[in-house]
């Protein structure tokens, strides 16, 4: 248990520090990399919470797909300039206020005792989780599952049609 506790502290501190980097660093690529580090720490926290599936999904979807997309967007357009045009320093005060409100809100939720009411998942319940998800996907949800694959295919075909240049 003590090892887990130490690991939690490490992951949490790295996550918070890198999240801080995301908002303070100047270079958008550095920000993106810092965000990847944050998301990886959160995946590690999911592992500590006995949710390997959620951890893997976190890595696949956020780190693998969303962040790669984000980096591509950064490479394609001059984000630095666009961001500076769009978010002028005069909005900074507003940003601080919103962030402060969110912080107070989450602190309130934590210390008001609302979190203690949540039930802990038992070890036994956590172990079979992935299997349950897999089984549900392939029994009750087999039809929507297949439809999603067609949706993705249609989206891919559409994206290629839209993006390709004139045939020469």
């Amino acid at each position: 248990m003590i090892v887990e506790y130490i690991l939690f502290i490490i992951f949490a501190v790295v996550a918070i520090v890198s999240a801080g980097c995301v908002v303070t660093l100047r270079n958008p690529v550095h920000c993106a990399v810092a965000l990847i580090i944050t998301l990886l720490q959160i995946a590690a926290l999911f592992l500590l919470l006995r949710s390997p599936f959620l951890a893997v999904v976190q890595v696949f979807i956020y780190v693998g797909a969303v962040m790669v997309l984000f980096l591509f967007a950064v490479f394609l357009i001059d984000v630095k300039k666009a961001a500076m045009d769009m978010f002028k320093p005069k909005y900074r005060a507003l940003a601080y206020i919103v962030a402060l409100i969110l912080l107070v809100e989450s602190l309130f939720v934590i210390f008001s005792g609302g979190i203690q009411e949540l039930t802990r998942i038992t070890e036994a319940g956590a172990e079979v989780k992935v299997e349950v998800i897999g089984r549900t996907l392939f029994t009750s949800y087999i039809f929507p599952f297949e439809i999603v694959s067609v949706v993705l295919l249609a989206a891919m075909v559409g994206a290629i049609v839209m993006a390709r240049d004139k045939k020469e």
Partner: peptide, 13 residues
Amino acid sequence: YLGIELMALPIYV
């Protein structure tokens, strides 16, 4: 819902 999305995505294109 998925049917609506599958209908809408190709029509957008």
